[in-house]
């Protein structure tokens, strides 16, 4: 029996990665849910939007690095986020003007919006391949770890190490800050309230004199900013690979819907639910149980509930189960 080592193991391989991944999903899912709340469609281009934002961040990072700018021990990418958000917001607003607004004026069905967003997805995907190419890009610099696994072992004398990457720490702090700021904005400001009102009851919002175009514009701005940050953090944490972002689409949708679509709190809860499920279900528990079981009773197999290759299936299964139990999601989102 070695409870301490087992706990450290759990922290190192499940809790820390899940919290970081959950934060990234939450930020992405917030964007999905905001667009859904105000524009009423599932944005299939959202994964690509995150990739696009991350790409601009990388380009800005390289540029800053070439100028010799550094904020070590923090990664330069944090500085690059500012201009990257500006560029991504501009792109998103142009997309809205040239594409989505047309369907808004025609009051098209959600399916038409989705097909349009598939078109946008193609274009963004093409732009990304064209500009930065399909290969892996590392852009993290500064100090890589907050705690190194080896240092942790030396410090505590345990045989298991606990490593926390700088990117993970930054992800959590940035997410906390952004979520707090977003909720303050939505709860306390006139514009934020008008966005909630518009998402809640579009016709009544119009009767109250709320300008839909402004609400939509703010939704896109916030969505683009969050997507850029989420995409950059995800890339910083796991290295930037354009094609992995499309695969984030399913966990993102799952997070938004599981939490209750159109509900910002739901997106955050959903993000963590999905992240923790993915990691816990695909983690092999062999070593963990080895620590807890008496000598000589070590388990033989890997004790993995599902192979990691099925991690996207996990988010989908969670989605289906939650929808079967509470059709509007955990936080009672829009019933449609």
């Amino acid at each position: 029996m070695d409870i301490l080592n087992a706990l450290v193991l759990l922290f190192n391989y499940i809790i820390v990665p899940s919290v970081a991944y959950g934060s990234q999903l939450a930020l992405g899912a917030l964007g999905v849910t905001l667009v859904y709340g105000t524009l009423r469609f599932a944005n299939f281009a959202h994964g690509e939007l995150m990739a696009f934002g991350a790409m601009i961040t990388i380009l800005c990072t390289w540029w800053l690095q070439s100028l010799g700018v550094s904020i070590a021990p923090l990664p330069t990418a944090l500085l690059a986020l500012g201009p990257a958000i500006a560029v991504t917001v501009a792109i998103v607003l142009i997309t809205d003007r040239t594409i989505y607004r047309f369907y808004r004026e025609k009051r098209s069905a959600p399916a038409i919006y989705i097909i349009a967003s598939i078109g946008v997805m193609f274009v963004m995907n093409g732009l990304i391949r064209f500009i930065i190419g399909p290969s892996d890009r590392a852009f993290g610099d500064g100090q890589r770890y907050i705690i190194k696994a080896q240092d942790f072992r030396d410090m505590t004398g345990l045989s298991e190490g606990l490593g926390i990457k700088t990117s993970q720490g930054i992800t959590v702090l940035v997410t906390l800050f952004l979520v707090a700021a977003l909720f303050w904005f939505l709860q306390k400001t006139r514009t934020g309230k008008s966005m909630r009102a518009y998402a809640d009851n579009r016709d009544l919002a119009l009767l109250s004199g709320i300008n839909p175009e402004r609400v939509v514009m703010y939704s896109w701005i916030i969505t683009a900013a969050l997507a850029t940050i989420a995409g950059a953090l995800y890339g910083l944490d796991k290295s930037f690979k354009p094609f992995t972002y499309f695969q984030l689409l399913l966990p993102l949708f799952a997070a938004a819907i599981v939490g209750g679509i159109g509900k910002p709190v739901g997106a955050i809860v959903g993000g963590f639910v999905i992240a923790f499920s993915e990691v816990t279900i695909t983690y092999p528990y062999k070593k963990f149980l080895t620590y807890l079981m008496p000598e000589g009773m070590q388990p033989s197999g890997l004790l993995q509930l599902l192979s990691t290759d099925y991690k996207f299936a996990v988010s989908f299964i969670i989605l289906v189960i939650v929808l079967m139990v509470t059709p509007t999601g955990i936080m009672k989102g829009k019933t449609v």
Partner: peptide, 18 residues
């Protein structure tokens, strides 16, 4: 559908005065 169901009573009034 004449109220904002997910907003508080006071916020409903504030939205009325938008």
């Amino acid at each position: 559908n004449n109220i904002f169901t997910t907003m508080t009573v006071e916020e409903n009034l504030e939205m009325g005065a938008f």
